[in-house]
């Protein structure tokens, strides 16, 4: 089977597009881990809540769903801060397994709370740009893919600017590097925990909006599979490393897209398994991760 350049580009582009949602999730997981040293296993549920918030706002206002990103992200930011303050902070510093068990309670709470509020049926909306495409040479790119990739790049650049160019970013990075030293320099590390969790939730919320506008279906239980993929990417890129999450996410999206194209759709989800095992056997702390914590 001869693969021409057009097909190759198509696979690459699909991969970039699919990778966007995983990158946003994985970056959030790593941001939270970097600062709090906690993995939020209910992260996929934040994606789901983001999707429903966008959907609700869309049903109420009928605005262009891309614009609703501006509303969904702050809602999830506040939601994340509340979750950190009410659930994670009380167990911070106790046994690590407690934080994992807490996330499980949150998964139950969020999934079924969402089912109570929004119902458990599949939902989807159609993007206003659904039928439009950008033609480059021999192949057509759906306009939505282009916008989603651009939005993701915009969000990541914004996050990078926040982390590198502001005092808040400096404080977040300091907390992540050395919590005690940060505390001694007068940084309110508990506030940094809340902000990091809020930012992570906001990124998941953005991913939720993008999920909805790309026309994919969603229900209250949609979060677990993307979350597993985000964890695979986190493991691939190294726990706590944001560049690792981005590179890992891109690699993962392209690998998934290539596997779907060459092996068939059934392998789409199983590829995360293979990626996980290969990476873990070769390097138990991930490709870019440091040894130990």
């Amino acid at each position: 089977m001869a693969i021409d350049v057009g097909t190759l580009l198509q696979i690459l582009f699909w991969g970039l597009y699919a990778g966007c949602i995983y990158i946003l999730l994985a970056t959030g997981v790593n941001l939270i881990f970097g600062v709090m040293k906690t993995v939020n296993f209910a992260h996929g549920e934040l994606l789901m809540i983001g999707a429903y918030v966008t959907w609700t706002l869309f049903s109420l206002t009928g605005l262009n769903p891309y614009l609703l990103l501006v509303a969904t992200v702050p809602v999830l930011l506040l939601f994340g801060i509340a979750v950190q303050r009410l659930a994670f902070r009380p167990v911070l510093g106790s046994h690590k397994l407690n934080e994992i068990f807490l996330s499980i309670g949150l998964i139950y709470l969020f999934q079924n709370g969402a089912a109570m509020i929004w119902g458990s049926d599949y939902q989807s909306i159609q993007s206003p740009f659904a039928s439009m495409a950008v033609t480059i040479g021999s192949f057509r790119l759906p306009l939505d893919y282009v916008i989603i990739i651009a939005v993701t790049i915009g969000i990541l650049v914004g996050l990078q600017l926040l982390l590198r160019r502001t005092r808040l970013g400096l404080a977040l990075r300091a907390t992540s590097q050395n919590r005690k030293a940060a505390m001694l320099s007068g940084i309110n590390v508990e506030r940094m925990d809340m902000i990091a969790f809020g930012l992570g939730a906001a990124l998941a919320g953005a991913a939720g909006t993008l999920w909805v506008v790309s026309g994919q279906v969603f229900d209250p239980y949609m979060g677990s599979v993307p979350a597993v993929k985000a964890f695979a990417i986190v493991i691939l890129g190294g726990l706590g490393s944001i560049p690792g999450a981005i590179i890992g996410g891109l690699f993962y999206g392209v690998a998934e897209s290539a596997a779907t194209y060459t092996l068939g759709g059934a392998w789409k989800d199983a590829i995360s398994f293979i990626v996980l095992i290969v990476v873990l056997v070769i390097r138990p702390t991930g490709l870019f991760g440091e040894r130990g914590e």
């Binding site: 296993f41 397994l97 597993v228 964890f231 695979a232 996980l276 138990p284 702390t285």
Partner: peptide, 10 residues
């Protein structure tokens, strides 16, 4: 802990 939890979950 974290890796183990993620991997078993996956």
């Amino acid at each position: 802990e974290w890796f183990l939890a993620m991997v078993t979950f996956g």
